[in-house]
Each structure stands twice: as C-alpha cells, then as structure tokens.
C-alpha cells in the first residue's frame, strides 16, 4: 500500500481531521489535527486495509521562531506472509518472510506554549516511552498517558532541553555546569 492510498483512505474516513499531505517527498507524511489524532491512530491500527501495527518512532521538532511544535509519528505496516503487499522486495521472498505493507508518517502540529495531545500509549504500547521522551525534552503534554514522568532528565530538572530557546542552567543541584553556555552553536 502506498502512502497515497493511505492518505486517500484517511481523507475519506476523516475528512475534517486530515489536512495537507506530502506524499511525494522524501518523507511521505500526512498532517492530522491534534483533537482527532487518537481516533485516527485507532483507525490506522485497526482498519484491515491500513493495519499500521508498529509505531516506529515519535519525534518532536521545535519550529522555534514560529510558535509551533511538530510531532512526527512514524508508522509501518508489517504484514505476515499471505497478507496483501504491493511493494515487494527485490530478491524473490521466501514464503514466510513478512512484508512491508506500507509506511506513513503522521504530523501533528501543536502550539508551542502549552502543547497538548491525546496519548496513543493505549494504541501502541511502545508510544509510552516515546511520549515520555517528547514530554521530557520538548515539553509536550500527553493527556491520558499512564505514567507522565520525565524519562531521560532527572525528575527535578527545570525546562525542556530540546526547545530552541532553552537556556542551559548554570548549575544543577549546586553542581556547576562545566560548559556553561554550551547551547550556543559555533
């Protein structure tokens, strides 16, 4: 299943939620509104045509001068042998190799101040840690997350380091930072 077909199915099912889609580029991607994202996710997982059974990654991108944050959800459909698949691997596959049933990225655009989106940890359990990471480093709040804590930084860390306007602290827990001001690029 190509990205275009997935986008068509989505547009048909969620005409209001699915905005612009960039299927031709390097990164086939479709934008979904934050409010509809959880329903779309459930549909993407459960619809037999799409059946995106694995969430590969959640990446947050801070678009700093603009007041928005992008979340990219990378999805892939892994089809057990016998499932429908258009894109065949070039060497003739042996009968029991799983096949690629299509990939798509979902872009969810959130406001930079106080970004909120419904958690999809109940759809794909792997989203649990990815969402915690996005919360930790970018400050995106995932509503309904089972364990909304920081994951990489200490629990008492202040700020979200991957934001473009993040100021590195001069000290942490009265330990002076060795490279204060390391945030500035060369």
């Amino acid at each position: 299943m190509t990205a275009q077909e997935i986008v068509d199915i989505l547009k048909q099912r969620f005409p209001a939620a699915v905005a612009d889609a960039a299927v031709e580029g390097l990164h086939p991607c479709v934008a979904v509104t934050p409010e509809a994202w959880h329903d779309v996710a459930l549909f993407l997982r459960d619809d037999p045509r799409v059946a995106m059974n694995m969430l590969r990654c959640i990446s947050g991108v801070d678009l700093h001068p603009e007041a928005e944050i992008d979340l990219f959800y990378e999805l892939i459909a892994m089809r057990a042998p016998g499932g429908t698949a258009r894109q065949e691997p070039r060497p003739p596959p042996s009968a029991d190799i799983w096949q690629n049933g299509g990939t798509i990225a979902i872009r969810v655009r959130l406001p930079r101040d106080n970004p909120h989106v419904r958690s999809v940890a109940d759809v794909w359990p792997t989203a649990d840690w990815h969402e915690r990471e996005a919360f930790d480093l970018l400050g995106v709040t995932f509503d309904g997350h089972p364990d909304p804590r920081r994951i990489l930084c200490p629990d008492d860390w202040i700020g979200h380091p991957l934001r473009k306007d993040y100021e590195f602290p001069k000290e942490y827990d009265s330990i002076p930072a060795a490279a204060a001001g390391a945030a500035s690029s060369e």
Binding site: N53, M54, R56, P89, P91, I97, W98, Q99, P125, T126
Partner: peptide, 21 residues
C-alpha cells in the same frame, strides 16, 4: 505492539529484517 525490532522481534518468530523487507 511494543515496537521491538531486530533479534528480539525475530526471536518472536516474525521474519522481518529491513535488509530484506
């Protein structure tokens, strides 16, 4: 569901390898 890949996924019987798939 938990996003396992590599030998962990293949150990569960899923014949999936990006080099081939």
């Amino acid at each position: 569901a938990y996003g396992l890949t590599g030998p962990c996924l293949r150990g569960s019987g899923v014949k999936w390898d990006l080099r081939r798939c």
